[in-house]
Computed example of a mutant assay.
Amino acid sequence: MKSNALMKFFLKFLLPVLIFVILFFFNSYAALAFAVLYIAYSLYDGRSAIFAIMGNVSYGKGDVQKSMEWFRKAYATGKAQPKTIISYAYLLLKYGKVNESEAILDKFLSKSPAFDDEMLAKSNLALVLWKKGNLDGAVDLLEEVFSKYKTTTIYGSLGYLLILKGDLEKALAFNLEAYDYNNSNSVIVDNLAQNYYLLGELDKSEEIYEKLMSQNPTYPEAYYNYGLTLEAKGKIDKALENMEKALNFQFTFLSTVSREDVENKIKELKSKKNNSGEQ
């Protein structure tokens, strides 16, 4: 491995410098022409990385369509780095292009990638399975990944899918483990609080959601789920306030609640408030 890396370094950097020096010794114009051609070739050869950077910049600015287009260009070069490929597949999934995402991940995994890249790709493929309605397959795949590779993201994804499967005691054991692993991650905290809510342990759920709110989460589920706990505790005003906050954040194909879900719950809470005469 080291010898291969040294050879690549020699061919890509040292050899061109050596050629430039030799050419410059005999003919400075030839050396300059060589330098221009080498820079042009390097930019062309590294265009996938440049496209990926542009994709990240566009995404950071909130321009999802432009970001998707840059990542598509990076992928189309055939020279994209594994993390670029996986990021593109995730972006496609996040915005509803499930089959395209699955095809990219399947193709990537068929090439026997490095261990870390394989685990990351499989964890994303599990989300594809979930969104295609194969919850059991998604959980099985994530549990396979988790047995070899533990990260905050995997704890968060698997913790939520275990809740969806309905074995709330098993889910709770896992989400408590996840909380011990990283109690500052908003998804992990949300999973545990939601788990307690579904088990009817409302005081514990509210306590954990108050911790989550102090982190100012930037996704709608946190406020929606907190609102459900508050509603169950009879705190209609506060529940309504959090439901309305949920509408300030972006809903995507991977969101676990829809804008319509939130809007319907707001109407329901307003109706409860009016009927009870609560101020």
Rank of each mutant, 00 (worst) to 15 (best):
Y95T: 08
I50F: 00
L141M: 13
V139E: 09
L247H: 09
F25S: 11
L161P: 02
L11F: 07
E244G: 04
G46N: 13
A30I: 03
N27H: 12
N185H: 08
Y29T: 11
S184D: 14
N274S: 14
G234I: 06
N56M: 11
A5L: 15
Y149I: 06
F9M: 15
M243N: 11
E207R: 02
D140I: 04
Q250M: 09
G277V: 08
A35G: 03
L37E: 03
I154H: 01
L228T: 01
D190Y: 06
F13T: 13
Y29Q: 14
F146C: 04
N242H: 09
F71H: 11
F51Q: 12
K2A: 12
I39N: 04
S258V: 05
M243L: 14
K148S: 14
E206T: 05
F108T: 03
A80P: 04
G96L: 09
E241G: 02
L129C: 04
K148A: 12
L172E: 14
A173P: 00
W70H: 12
K97Y: 12
Y95L: 03
F13K: 09
Y197L: 06
V36S: 09
L202D: 01
L230W: 07
G62D: 10
T84L: 04
S28C: 00
L247T: 11
A49T: 08
V189A: 03
P220D: 05
T218W: 00
G156Q: 06
S214Y: 12
V257A: 03
K245S: 08
L135S: 05
A138F: 05
Y44T: 11
L37H: 00
K245T: 12
K111Y: 05
K131T: 02
S87M: 06
S42W: 10
W130F: 15
N195M: 05
E118A: 13
K273H: 06
L92E: 12
K107C: 01
V64I: 15
I266F: 12
T256L: 10
K267D: 14
N275D: 11
F71G: 11
G156N: 07
A239Q: 04
A178R: 04
I86C: 05
E210L: 02
N274T: 09
P16T: 06
A222R: 04
Y59C: 05
L141G: 10
V21N: 05
I163R: 06
N242S: 02
T153V: 12
M119A: 13
L199P: 02
I22H: 01
K148T: 06
K66D: 10
A193W: 04
E278W: 10
A246G: 11
S48A: 15
L127H: 01
K170T: 14
T256R: 13
V262F: 08
L176C: 03
L176D: 10
I208L: 05
R47F: 00
A171M: 06
L32H: 03
L18E: 01
Y149F: 15
T229Y: 02
S67T: 10
V98T: 15
L269H: 09
Y95R: 07
M119I: 02
G227E: 05
G234E: 08
S271N: 10
Y29F: 10
L161C: 08
A222H: 03
E263L: 10
S276H: 07
S110E: 03
